[in-house]
Amino acid sequence: MIQQILKDRPTKLFIGFAAFFVANALIAECIGGKIFSLEKLFGFDPVNLTLFGQSGLSFSLTCGVLLWPLEFVMTDIVNEYYGPKAVKRISYTAVALISYAFIMFYASIHIPYADWWPASKANQGVPDMQVAFNGIFGQGMWIILGSLVAFLVSQVVDVFVFQRIKRATGEKKVWLRATGSTLVSQLIDSFIVLTIAFKLGSNWTWAQVIAVGCVNYMYKFTIAILLTPLIYFAEARIEKYVGKETAIKMKKAAMER
């Protein structure tokens, strides 16, 4: 039985997608505590936008956004070849394992450290290792909750929009269903996470939520458009790996699920 699974290329491909999907999501959550300046990354000054009465806005983004676009690309690819049930399965698996990881982070923060463990690395700019450890792995519960809820809801929306567009267009216009579903789901994701993490968790005003959400969505919108060719590249590689006839059968079966 296991030998048949390991020899079946569509099965191996799905296992690879699922593993990378979960790992990518977990890494994105872990590095999400750091905020970076997109403008400074490319050598520009902050743009200082003013939206909804909120001034001084710039593209200050969580490092997690570097990886999340890949999640939605993979979502569309899995949806195309394996169907919505497969997307939901890997999404639920990702949420469950991320939740498990944060439980382990929480436990490790509160476990007493050994006497010989270096409590300080002042020569490296870290005066208190325990505080540094807590700061990296101890993200606020509202942020964790907001991120997980936003991820799960946006995945479900992405699947729904993708399938609706595909049923309307058939096998044509891959770019429309892939990019269109991502643009809709990312819009929802942007505002859900801010509402839960900062409106409920930090008493932000609605003006702050909407203003920051719009700035974040500008970035996500642009990345979604730029990554569209990646869908075509991935489809070409998949067709080459499993064979054209098998790829056609996979797409047909995905529509029936």
Rank of each mutant, 00 (worst) to 15 (best):
I109L: 10
H110K: 13
I111H: 10
Y113W: 13
A114H: 10
A114L: 11
K121Q: 15
K121H: 13
K121C: 05
A122Y: 04
N123V: 11
N123G: 14
G125C: 08
P127W: 03
D128T: 04
D128L: 07
Q130C: 11
V131Q: 09
V131D: 04
F133D: 05
G135W: 02
G135K: 03
I136R: 00
I136M: 01
G138P: 04
W142D: 04
L145I: 12
S147R: 01
V149H: 00
A150D: 11
F151M: 10
F151W: 05
V157R: 00
D158H: 13
D158P: 08
D158T: 06
V161K: 00
F162D: 04
K166I: 06
K166M: 14
R167C: 04
A168Q: 14
K172N: 15
K173N: 14
W175V: 08
R177F: 08
T179W: 06
T179H: 02
G180D: 06
T182E: 15
L183E: 07
L183C: 05
S185N: 03
I188C: 11
F191Q: 05
I192F: 02
V193L: 02
L194M: 12
T195R: 03
I196E: 02
F198W: 10
F198P: 04
F198A: 03
G201S: 05
G201V: 02
N203P: 10
T205Y: 11
T205A: 07
I210K: 13
A211N: 00
G213W: 03
N216M: 08
M218V: 09
Y219L: 12
F221C: 12
F221S: 04
F221M: 13
L226K: 09
L226I: 15
L226A: 15
L227G: 01
L227R: 00
T228S: 12
P229N: 14
L230K: 11
I231R: 01
I231N: 10
I231G: 05
F233A: 11
F233H: 09
F233V: 13
